[in-house]
Computed example of a mutant assay.
Amino acid sequence: MPDLNKIIHQPARLKIMAMLNAMPIDADVDFVYLRDELKMTDGNLGSHLTKLEDANYLKQKKTFVGKKPRTYIRLTSKGRSHFETHVTLLKEILG
């Protein structure tokens, strides 16, 4: 049996990936919405997003709405694929 994905398996990152995976493929999720839903601090969420982005599992798009910065996040196809593999392995372990 292959090993679990160490990047995704960390609990906070697993929650992030699960939430993003539940969104339509072309949907962007607002950083603030993600932070509030996952009950994380800005810094904690930001560091986990960076780790996932470094692995090419998600993309962050930074824009401005008026004068306020906004960050939008979406899974990459690689991220979706690795998440689905990870979930399959978890199901095998639990099954």
Score class of each variant (00 low, 15 high):
Asn56Arg: 09
Asp28His: 12
Glu53Gly: 13
Ser47Lys: 11
Lys78Leu: 15
Asp54Ile: 00
Asp30Glu: 12
Phe64Met: 14
Leu14Val: 00
Ile25Lys: 15
Glu37Tyr: 08
Thr71Asp: 09
Leu49Ile: 06
Leu4Pro: 02
Gly79Tyr: 01
Val65Pro: 00
Lys15Ile: 10
Ser47Ala: 05
His9Glu: 15
Tyr57Gln: 04
Leu49Phe: 01
Glu84His: 10
Ile7Arg: 02
Val32Trp: 01
Pro11Gln: 05
Lys51Phe: 03
Glu53Arg: 08
Val65Asp: 12
Leu89Tyr: 02
Lys91Asn: 15
Thr63Lys: 06
Arg70Ser: 09
Thr76Lys: 09
Met17Asn: 04
Leu49Lys: 01
Lys67Tyr: 08
Asp42Val: 09
Thr63Pro: 00
Lys51Ser: 13
Leu58Asn: 03
Pro69Leu: 06
Lys62Cys: 06
Lys67His: 05
Asp28Gln: 06
Gly66Ala: 14
Ile16Tyr: 04
Leu20Gln: 02
Val32Ala: 13
Thr71Cys: 13
Ile7Glu: 08
Arg74His: 07
Asp3Asn: 12
Met40Pro: 05
Tyr57Phe: 15
Val32Tyr: 05
Leu20Trp: 00
Arg80Pro: 09
Tyr57Pro: 03
Asn56His: 08
Arg13Ile: 01
Ile25Val: 14
Lys68Tyr: 05
Asp30Arg: 07
Ile25Cys: 10
